[in-house]
Design a binder for these strands. Structure first.
Ligand SMILES: [Mn+2]
Ligand SMILES: [Mn+2]
Ligand SMILES: [Zn+2]
Ligand SMILES: [Zn+2]
Lengths: 155, 155
DNA sequence: TTGCAAATGGTTATCATTGTCAATTTATTT
DNA sequence: AAATAAATTGACAATGATAACCATTTGCAA
C-alpha cells in the first residue's frame, strides 16, 4: 500500500513548512502515537520507539514531542501522577476532540467525546466574554473530571 | 480582637476532627494562604511562613500543604510551569469558587468567578451522564483557559 | 557528491518533591 | 506543674522527570 508513502510525503511537507527536517525518529514517534489509544509518558513512548528503532534515545523523544506540540500535532497532559502524558492532537490521524475522566485511585484515564458539541457552544460563549473582560486572547481550554472508577470505589 | 482567638479555636477543632494537632507552623501556613490573592508555590509559601516563623522548614510546608489538601482546606493546581500552586479551597476564609485564565506567555493567572452558576448547572448534568455511562464516581472537575494576556500578545 | 545547518545520543545537571531519622513539640494525664 | 506518649519537626539525602551540553551524525539543497 503506497498509502504509507503518501503519508510520509505529507509528514515531510508538514515538517518543512515549520522549517524542520523529517527524520526516522520523528516518523517513528508519530507512528507510535498513532497506533495507541493509551496516554503514554515520554518514557513509554521511548520504549516503543526504541523497540522499532533502537538507535533513538530518550532525549530525542523529549525533543520530538516538544516539536510536535509546537507544530500542533501532539497534545500534552498532566493527570497528576508526576509525568506528562502525550496524545495525537485533534485532527491528526483521525484523532477526535475529547476530554478525560481521571481516576484518582488507580490513575486510569477514560476518554470521552460526548457533549463535545454542547461544550463547544457553551465554552465559545464563555471564552468570548472572558476574553473581553480580562483582555485575554484565549486559545484553548482544558477540562478534566476527577473521581473513582468502579474498581477503585469498591469496598 | 478576640476574633483571632475564635478563629484559632475553630482551626484547632478542625485539626482534631481529622486526628491531627494544631501547630504554629500549620497556623502560619493557613494565615499566609488567607492573606494572599496570588497563586503561591510551596517555596513561595515557605518564604512567607519563614519570615514570620524562621524555624519552619520547607519540608514541613510541603507536609502541611498535603495535610490541608486532604482536609479539604487547600487546593493544588498545575499551571504548567513545573511547580504546584496552592490556594485556599472554596469556602474557607471566604474563598469563592472560581476558575483560571493562564497566560502561556508570562504565566500570569487570572481568577474569574463569572459563569460559575451556569457552569455548575452545565457540569452537573454532564457529570451525571458520564458517571452512569463510564461507572465513575466523579468528585470534582478542573477547568482552565489558556491564552495570552494583553501584555504578552502585544507586538 | 559535497557542505553545512539541523538533529541526535550519551551523559551530566537541574530542581521540585519525597524519604529518613533523631530531636522537639503537643495534648493529655497525673 | 511535671510526666508521658504520640505526633510533628527540621536538616539532610534521595529520587525522578526533564533540560542542558557537546561531540558526532544525518538530511537535503546545490
Ligand atoms: Mn485522551
Ligand atoms: Mn485562583
Ligand atoms: Zn481506578
Ligand atoms: Zn502574559
Amino acid at each position: 500500500m503506497n498509502n504509507k508513502i503518501r503519508n510520509k510525503m505529507e509528514l515531510n511537507k508538514q515538517f518543512r513548512q515549520f522549517g524542520h527536517k523529517m527524520t526516522s525518529g520523528r516518523e517513528t514517534t508519530i507512528d507510535v502515537l498513532s497506533e495507541t489509544d493509551e496516554h503514554l509518558s515520554a518514557e513509554d513512548i521511548h520504549i516503543k520507539v526504541h523497540s522499532v528503532n533502537p538507535k533513538i534515545g530518550l532525549t530525542t523523544v523529549y525533543r520530538t514531542l516538544e516539536l510536535l506540540i509546537n507544530m500542533g500535532m501532539v497534545s500534552k497532559f498532566d493527570f497528576g501522577d508526576g509525568r506528562a502524558r502525550y496524545e495525537l492532537a485533534e485532527g491528526f490521524k483521525g484523532a477526535k476532540h475529547h476530554h478525560h475522566l481521571v481516576c484518582t485511585g488507580c490513575g486510569r484515564i477514560v476518554d470521552y467525546s460526548e457533549f463535545v458539541k454542547e461544550e463547544k457552544t457553551f465554552f465559545k460563549r464563555i471564552e468570548l466574554e472572558l476574553s473581553r473582560k480580562y483582555d485575554f486572547r484565549i486559545t484553548n481550554h482544558l477540562v478534566q473530571f476527577y473521581g473513582l472508577c468502579k474498581k477503585c470505589e469498591g469496598y
